[in-house]
Design a protein around this nucleic acid. Structure first.
Lengths: 360, 360
DNA sequence: CTGAAAGCGCTTACAG
DNA sequence: CTGAAAGCGCTTACAG
């Protein structure tokens, strides 16, 4: 890092008071000639304020640019108008979509969102232990974190909880990972493939997410249905990123009787795999078929066959569910949602060729 | 959306109190046999507490799992231990990296981060108008938003401000976009190209970001140096995403005397452009060279020549700067930072061929 | 080194 | 329909 050279510097800001005198509820009350209690009621649209009074208050508030101090409100009323969102990592496609979707509807409803990166088990434990005590949110959206019932129950002390990507005792937004993975695998089986690899997700020492487990289940179920034995050496972990996928594929190519088709549990890994295949001088789908999972933007541009999930909608739905839970006194009847996935066949999958040059 | 079928439902959570009795400072004081003032001092590590007393307080606090209510602290002390982050959109590579980087260091320092999506001019105006009044953050990180000096000065009423990607009167973290773009363009010129297209960023009706302007400047400057006239029809806007890049390239291919090389202002657009070129049956870099900007994960996997910027570091540096500003009473001497970029030559650029079949 | 008390800016019964 | 007052859970001079 080098610091900026003088000539590129913008002029420094003018000195300002960091805590300017901004209007308080008392100022508004004074201007409107009513009590602070009335201001409070008028501004929040509570009943029992005469139209004329409400008008005067609103006008005064506008004139003073009054905005209620959120922490004071929280302290007095017990609500923060903010929602916490916990995601394992901020840079992966799925999470960015979910966060963006949720932030959009939350903001539209006047809620702030507090973002927590929860990359490992330690952080998750701390999050679960401390969040409910800190009283800083009205509700929580928990994405993909492998929380147990006791964890969710603890978190719910902070307010309603909605989980995304994991089933839980709280309302959740999920997809049917088993079925989606089964569909992808079945697609390969239907094309005549019998040696089908799986690039799965096995975190180094990180959190044990449930989606990978379920997707593997779908894969194994279809193999069983088709009377194909699972070969452990065809199941290789990546790290849900490009490089992991590339390395996993490299390993699959070294196996005795290597796969003629591979299902990768994320598009990022699938694209990494494609690169390895091509770098090895092999053709897709001539020599090897590859199917991904997600329908990442990049999937269309690599002509990747994949199973699409509506990640941004998952975030939106979670926010909507949470909004419901927070407004209901009784959130018992807020129901979970399973969003549909969809097989998208593009150009990276094709029929198995008996003349397969990899058959060995 | 279909709601979940009964048999997939997890058992509902046990009923809980949403506002459980959690320990207050009074409880701790009581247990430790001291006053709340002493508890406050002891816990925050202030001087003037005897070691023995401090010990007793800390023990009591631990026993009760005491966590200070942040809103009460804020109200009394005027600090929230939370930082606001405003980003134009949450799903683009650059922004996710910056947010992830900043969140990491902020969380490590005990700060919460409030995330604001600011997708358009209206939202930005509202953000600037209301944020300072709402007193909900101790400081602000503003990413890429085209804020003017008056905007920053207003925002600074909420607390220190650091901008990322834009120069401002506040401390900033930037890269030298002009120079970086010039380097990319010069790379093309040095390969003998004279007809060089630019896929730039021109938002439909959105915010006018400064990076695109600067990158275009760098492009034009190098053309001028090389004695090449700027041809307006070779400058085509994309939307900073794959599809925009693909469409822009399609347009470039229809131009009379089309470019033999193209500089795209983001890798995402460059990759979209690559797709168009190949779909048209042309070869990269044989027929057309393409250079991007960012060094997105995907760049290595498409063998894209690009100029790399350290996006995550930009986020980390911004957080560090903000931390400094917030701790200093006087943040006048918190200096701006310009992070280095780096040309990464891979396989999508090559020499201009005079036998160019596009030359017409 | 420690405590009593005022105050941060709101909301909410409770009277009227 | 409206206001006076208590209270939310802390921090911070001010005394001692």
């Amino acid at each position: 890092m080098k610091t900026v050279s003088p000539h590129t510097l913008s002029p420094p800001c003018e000195e300002v008071e960091h805590s300017p005198v901004s209007a308080s509820i008392g100022d508004v009350a004074h201007l409107a000639g009513v009590s602070v209690a009335t201001v409070s009621r008028a501004i929040r649209g509570l009943p029992n304020v005469s139209p004329a009074t409400r008008d005067r208050v609103l006008k005064a508030a506008a004139e003073l640019q009054y905005v209620a101090h959120p922490h004071a409100s929280r302290l007095a009323a017990g609500r923060t108008m903010t929602v916490g969102m916990a995601v394992p990592m901020l840079t992966q496609w799925f999470f960015t979509q979910v966060v963006a979707g949720a932030e959009g509807v939350l903001a539209a409803n006047g809620y702030d969102v507090l973002l927590y990166g929860v990359p490992d088990a330690d952080t998750m434990r701390r999050f679960i232990d401390e969040m409910p005590l800190s009283k800083r949110v009205d509700g929580l959206i928990v994405v993909d974190l492998p929380v147990e019932t006791s964890d969710v129950e603890r978190l719910r002390q902070a307010g309603p909880v909605v989980t995304v990507g994991v089933d839980s005792c709280a309302p959740s937004v999920t997809i049917d990972n088993v079925e989606a993975a089964a569909t992808a695998t079945r697609h390969l089986v239907n094309l005549g493939h019998r040696r089908i690899g799986l690039i799965c997700h096995l975190p180094p020492q990180a959190l044990e997410f449930t989606a990978p487990v379920q997707r593997r289940l779908g894969y194994e179920r279809v193999l069983a249905e088709a009377g194909i034995a699972v070969r452990e050496e065809l199941i290789v972990p990546g790290n849900f990123a490009l490089q992991g996928g590339a390395e996993a594929m490299a390993q699959l190519l070294t196996v005795d009787r290597p796969p003629s088709a591979v299902f990768a549990e994320s598009d990022e890994m699938a694209i990494g795999a494609l690169k390895t295949v091509r770098d090895a001088g092999l053709h897709v789908p001539g020599d090897i078929s590859v199917v991904g999972f997600d329908d990442h933007d990049m999937a269309a541009y690599t002509d990747l066959t994949t199973v699409a999930q509506p990640a941004m909608q998952e975030g939106e739905a979670a926010a909507t569910l949470l909004l419901e839970s927070m407004s209901d006194d009784d959130d018992r009847d807020v129901s979970s949602i399973v969003l549909p996935t969809k097989m998208v066949v593009r150009a990276t999958t094709g029929p198995e060729r008996s003349s397969d040059r990899l058959a060995g």
